[in-house]
Amino acid sequence: MPSRTSSWFSSPAEAVTRLGDVGYLADDSTALTSYLAGALEKPVLIEGPAGVGKTELAKAITRATGAELVRLQCYEGLDEARALYEWNYKKQLLRIQAANDGQAWEETHDDIFSEEFLLTRPLLTAIRREEPTVLLIDEVDKTDVEVEGLLLEVLSDFQVTIPELGTMTSTRRPLVVLTSNATRELSEALKRRCLYLHLDYPDADREREIVLSQVPGLDDKVARQLVSVVGRLRELELKKAPSIAESVDWARTLIALEITDLSDKAVADTLGVVLKHSSDVDRAVRELRLKR
């Protein structure tokens, strides 16, 4: 349930404006979900193809609200010790060796399981912070199922129990953003706890705005041509369709090469920036009838 007023967005419209101010051009559903995440204090799960701005949205919310970003980057093999906390064994061993013979074991024990020997990892860091925090759990589909169980626990009550130190409860809930490329299905239980946003490729107008805002000096006409070719490429059932990131890269390349008109030849010459597989390049050349 929503609690005291926080520093998150006060309405979907305000989210659009404030995200826009920090360079993120959000559509209606993105703005609404960003607003609801703060207002309902619920984590948001963002799914979508690579490079459509999932990670960037978390960063933009951070900038727009003056919060701080805590990031947990997921990978196969990530475990509790890397995600939550672990004890600093080496330091503990040194401390035990250094203990003088007279010291009772109980005393040493209490000593080595204290704050000083605790290595705080992103999840615990985010829970303990008292200032506004955005917790980004990036590429959650890369983790194993056990980590998902851990996330489920932490995201349910925002508290962590460390046997030797007691229970730590967050005083100010972080705004949590999880991103996923959907390389695997996440558990229903985790999804139930989250709001859901599917980010997809933007429409031509928004994409042009994004490209123009990130590549100053790009001619509006070229931007239009570029966005239209990218749109056509996305129709082609390629292995890896070009993302916003690739549109931006392409625009930068065109500037560097001083190309001021995106002719078929110019497209053919620079296609490698946009498409990463050679079978995709072949297909594009064939279907768009580009001469090389």
Binding site: L32, L36, Y196
Partner: peptide, 18 residues
């Protein structure tokens, strides 16, 4: 439109259910 998106954000957890 916002009613629809609010429902979608809270109830639809997979893109292909949209």
């Amino acid at each position: 439109q916002q009613v629809k998106e609010a429902y979608a954000a809270t109830l639809v957890k997979r893109a292909n259910q949209r």
